[in-house]
Nucleic acid binder design. Structure first.
Ligand code: SF4
Ligand code: SF4
Lengths: 135, 135
DNA sequence: TCGAAATAGGATAAAATTACTCCTAATTTA
DNA sequence: TAAATTAGGAGTAATTTTATCCTATTTCGA
């Protein structure tokens, strides 16, 4: 029931790229700024690129940028890009994962809780996060 | 970001005990009814007893009962009894777990999302679950 | 054109967590 | 006392998490 370190780092990556405002940032730069290992950060950035959240340019002046403006990327997207679709319980994403689902009175609760969570995470764009003063 | 199997089983245990209505149920009975292994179920029931959710009686006519009426036990309590306090991210339960928390704009989001989740899970008592028709 | 700087991707591995099992001791009832 | 039952500790296999490292590819600029 916990966010993976990978997902936390992914959020930090996107946050950094958003604050960089379009200037390509290299893995090393991002990793150092956010206190993460460079090799692991590289892997995460790859996933963000594959998910269409970031874009990369190889070579000398290369690095990573956001593929879309910060207002168009949500926390949910970033999390799902690295740790897959949200799944509070095995039965939520696919009912077939538990054959008790038809007579289970808790199943609908997980569905509801996850929907709430999803909605909230979708409501946080990186523009919004950037403008919120950390406290 | 997923409920452990243990927590899911724990909920099933409590659900079963609630439906048994005060009659002591042995591990084997609970496990069979809910499609869980007996040995693992025994471990989980022990945790529920330690958390004050269930009570046990050893010996021949022994077994497990709920320690309180179903209306007084919530989903949250059962989950926390087996997998510990809810913690959506390392920084939520204790800020010291991440030294970036003071300048992190995402930290408050996790706090908020977890609070929502907690509130919702607290709102589901086992009386409520028992009376809800599974669909 | 070559070399340096950078990402892409695959393989590998250590550590932690999850999901169990098994055994012995203690307790309770008939 | 024998049978039924929980209590608790120890142990274990599988899975997931959290990385690291290596090689290939791309790009820039001298
Ligand atoms: S028992 Fe109910 S809540 Fe648990 S996995 Fe099955 S359907 Fe979902
Ligand atoms: S970076 Fe922010 S969200 Fe992530 S653990 Fe630290 S304080 Fe929490």
């Amino acid at each position: 029931m916990q966010l993976t370190r990978e997902a936390d780092y992914a959020v930090r990556c996107v946050l950094y790229l958003a604050s960089a405002g379009g200037r390509p940032a290299a893995v090393g730069e991002i990793a150092e700024a956010q206190g993460m290992s460079a090799a692991f950060t590289a892997k995460i950035l790859q996933k963000l690129v594959n998910a269409g959240i970031a874009a990369s340019r190889r070579g000398v002046k290369g690095g990573f940028v956001l593929a879309r403006p910060p207002a168009e990327t949500t926390l949910l997207e970033v999390i799902e890009a690295v740790q897959g679709p949200l799944a509070l319980n095995i039965c939520v994403v696919d009912r077939k994962n538990c054959d008790r689902n038809s007579r289970c009175s808790v199943h609908p609760v997980w569905v509801e809780v996850q929907a709430d969570m999803k909605k909230k995470l979708e409501s946080y764009t990186f523009e919004r996060l950037l403008n919120s003063s950390p406290r």
